[in-house]
Amino acid sequence: MQDLQAQDREWSAAMRAALAGDAAAYARLLTGLTPFLRTLCRRSCARVGLATSEAEDAVQETLLAIHLKRHTWDSSQSLTPWIAAIARNKIIDAARRRGRRAETNIEDFEHVLAAPPETEHFEREQGRQDALRLLVQLTGKQREAIEAVSIRGESLRVAAVNLGVTEGALRVSVHRGLKTLAALYRKSNT
């Protein structure tokens, strides 16, 4: 229990830093959250009868939702229940979309936090898996922008120079692209 509280304090502090503009703290937080989201999504997918190969999709959809809705977190509260509610919502959605009867008793997030995380090797394998197949459905500018800052890992400034656009315009394209991806997830397999 002590560990869970320490974990939550660490995550909450990282999210506060992220909301204050610290992109590096934000990247560390998301990377730190991912193993737990993955465990949660794998177990939940198994429970609602989805193939575990769909779990990585659910992880990415949850990360996208965390990102696009992070302003709904009340920074005076702890972060874990907020994350858990978003993950639960996304998994139920994913199950419903595929016509399964969504069970609401998705495994308690605290259970997953308390469980030993999967091995590092397993994590690396999962992290490399191509899951966001929806990227190919993005239109030109948004797709270029997202590929530059994600797959090629360029900074906004470098990517803007390479693509011959202003940094502001690139920023807008990245944001719109992420919103489009979230919308594509909502519509996929319906």
Binding site: V59, D130, L132, L178
Partner: peptide, 22 residues
Amino acid sequence: MNTDDLIAALAADNDTKATPLR
């Protein structure tokens, strides 16, 4: 795009903020 790439894209988008709820 894999999950690590997605995280890089999300971090690059950290400065774009939605309107606060209130």
